[in-house]
Simulated scan of single mutants.
Amino acid sequence: MAVAVAAFVAVTGAGIFGLWSYYAATGPAQETTVVIPKGAGVRGTASVLDAAGVIDNRKLFLIATKITGADRMLKAGEYRIPASSSMRQVLDLLRSGKTVVRRFTVAEGLSVRQVDALIRAEPALEGDPGPVPPEGSLLPETYHFTLGDNRQTIIARMRAAMDSNLAVLWDKRAPDLPLKTPQQALILASIVEKETGVPAERPRIAGVFINRLRAGMPLQSDPTIVYGIKRGEPLGRPILLSELQGITPYNTYTFVGLPPTPISNPGLDSLKAVMNPMETSDLYFVADGSGGHAFSSTYAEHQRNVQRWRSLERQGVR
């Protein structure tokens, strides 16, 4: 009897040692990404891991999850399994719920239609995004999400980010701006965003537009005309003289003041520029051929800058 018990203990001990060795052994040499579906359970999880080459013995995996209690704690989601991960490390990761963090980036100056198209095209998101939100209501930024997150949730986060940042910046705005509401500041910021791709210029361009609003001058912003024609899509050609002279709510050549809505989703830098514009006497600016603009405070000086720009255009500079 004593011999039989000793033999059983030896065999059992060997089995436990073998299982522990397998549990702690180094896994595949390459990093692997797996997706554990909701409701997969421990057996479904074992199948996914086995198919991906993360484990090579489903039975031992099931035993290990049972012994450790992990079978009741595994979480669904997308996981990036580091190279050489042991079964113990894999189970720790699946219990932690630390799924892959994805990034969705919205560039400054896109329209809500363009952002809506990007969100619809993102395969890692789910659900219909719903109606296109109001122009200018989405803050351009990089947003983190996980596989299967809802598109409407991402849009709600973008809107909340714009609302909160706009409120904070409005409270910190310079005194005596010719802007009555945060919405007016948002509209002007959307124009500044489309006027230049040079971050350092934004406070100065904002200063020009603020000076024009104070003087009762038209803003004369080409991007507003384009928005009136295409509602946020690229025009793809030069603006026609008839369009410059056309009567639309977005033609800032033919009326004084701001257009009725933003023309893009401005970034934080453009919002900050409008809330605290550069103090300048400038009333005009035109492209200078370097990607930036030449500024002037008199119409005569502006005309000279325009002539220089026209000469550069004839030379093929864009």
Rank of each mutant, 00 (worst) to 15 (best):
D269W: 04
L94Q: 06
P203A: 04
K172Y: 02
P277M: 00
I55E: 07
S264T: 00
N265Y: 03
G69A: 06
P37G: 02
D163W: 00
I67T: 05
D171V: 00
T280E: 14
M275Y: 00
V208G: 05
S111D: 02
L283I: 04
T142H: 12
S137D: 09
R314I: 06
T68E: 06
R120W: 10
I81F: 10
A2F: 13
M73I: 02
L139N: 04
F17E: 07
M275C: 13
R159W: 05
I119G: 02
P259F: 10
A273W: 00
T33C: 12
P129Y: 00
P82N: 09
F8I: 10
K98Q: 15
R58L: 06
L188N: 02
T45W: 02
A156T: 14
S290I: 07
G207T: 06
A76C: 06
S47E: 15
A117W: 01
L213N: 01
A121K: 13
P238D: 12
V34A: 10
A156N: 12
D176N: 14
D92M: 13
L177E: 07
Y299Q: 12
A4N: 06
K66W: 15
D222A: 05
L240R: 15
L213I: 13
T248Y: 01
P249S: 09
G69I: 09
R318Y: 14
V54N: 00
I155R: 03
